[in-house]
């Protein structure tokens, strides 16, 4: 098993190198001379050349990449020219805010979708089942922006229950968390439901009932664990989806996280910052996936000992 984890971790490193190449090339592909961008329009050819040498952009791409990676591994992601601060500082000051939002969103959606999916699976074909499937469909098809704006319209503008934007109190977090978790709740409802339907047809469920265990306990304990395991496998990929979603959601709700930082970086054409965000986000995503995979081998006995 340890061997498996090591192999998986090595594959992750390969992926990360690939991502760093993409992030590196992205900025080099940008139209225009990066040295010129750093200088005022009136700069002379000599100052531009001097800037090129200082930035290292006069060297071959491969050498530039190695220099870049050397810095990255030292923790230096470059400087955001707009904020005039180090990219890593900027990113890590915003990260907790997004993590809080995503974590709360995931928690909310699990609290909602697990019971719903279970009831739908147990009462297959009932009204609540149809409702849950409809919800799952809507959840897949709803745009983050629009859902966010509709929530603002209803709960902030009309009912005046929740603040429409900003941060600070718990109330500020409710709407963005619902939006960020919405797609995941749809997916999880679907998975728990189909998992439940499959599990309840298994022999071992009949066998458990034949031991006199009540229906309720069979559902909530013995079938539950089996039905829930598949959901764990998609939690990792949801981290990526939430990162994508956070860009839009944080912009809608003015939430000061990585997502809104990205949007600002794009408006400001802050390439160095965009590059760093891409690299860091991908790293977090890949590492989360790795952790979930490892965690799964511990949760599902069928994998861990094979």
């Amino acid at each position: 098993m340890l061997q498996k984890i090591i192999r998986r971790a090595l594959a992750t490193v390969v992926v990360l190198i690939g991502v760093s190449i993409i992030a590196f090339l992205l900025v080099r592909l940008a139209p225009g001379d990066p040295a010129k961008l750093m200088l005022p329009d009136t700069a002379t050819e000599e100052t531009i050349q001097a800037m090129r040498e200082k930035m290292g952009t006069d060297k071959p791409l491969f050498i530039q990449y190695l220099t870049y990676m050397k810095n990255v591994l030292k923790g230096d992601l470059g400087t955001s020219y707009h904020y005039n601060r180090s990219c890593s500082q900027l990113i890590f000051s915003r990260l907790p805010s997004t993590a809080k939002l995503a974590g709360f969103g995931m928690l909310l959606s699990l609290c909602f979708s697990i019971p719903l999916g279970m009831i739908a699976g147990i009462k297959k074909g009932s009204f609540i089942d149809t409702l849950s499937m409809f919800f799952a469909m809507i959840g897949q098809s709803m745009s983050h922006v629009w859902l966010g704006l509709m929530l603002i319209l209803i709960f902030a503008v009309n009912l005046k229950w929740l603040p429409s934007m900003g941060t600070g109190t718990f109330k500020h977090m409710i709407m963005p968390a619902i939006v960020i978790g919405f797609q995941f709740s749809a997916l999880a409802t679907r998975m728990v439901r189909s998992g439940m339907i499959d599990v309840l047809q298994e022999d071992y469920i009949t066998a458990t009932r034949a031991k006199g265990i009540s229906k309720f306990k069979v559902y909530t304990k013995y079938a539950f664990k089996n039905a829930l395991l598949p959901v764990v496998t998609v939690v990792g990929s949801q981290v990526g989806a939430m990162m994508s979603g956070s860009m839009v959601i944080e912009t809608v709700f003015s939430w000061p996280g990585i997502g809104s930082l990205t949007t600002q970086a794009i408006y400001n054409r802050d390439y160095q910052l965009i590059q760093s965000i891409l690299l860091i986000s991908a790293t977090i995503f890949v590492v989360c996936n790795l952790l979930v995979d490892i965690l799964y081998t511990f949760i599902d006995p069928r994998i861990s000992f094979n």
Partner: peptide, 24 residues
């Protein structure tokens, strides 16, 4: 397949937004 892994490892919308932001 490694290329697939790499592309899957970058959150989709984020990658798309970053690339378009740079390329125009």
């Amino acid at each position: 397949m490694r290329l697939c892994d790499i592309l899957m490892a970058t959150p989709g919308l984020l990658l798309a937004v970053c690339v378009v932001a740079v390329l125009g």
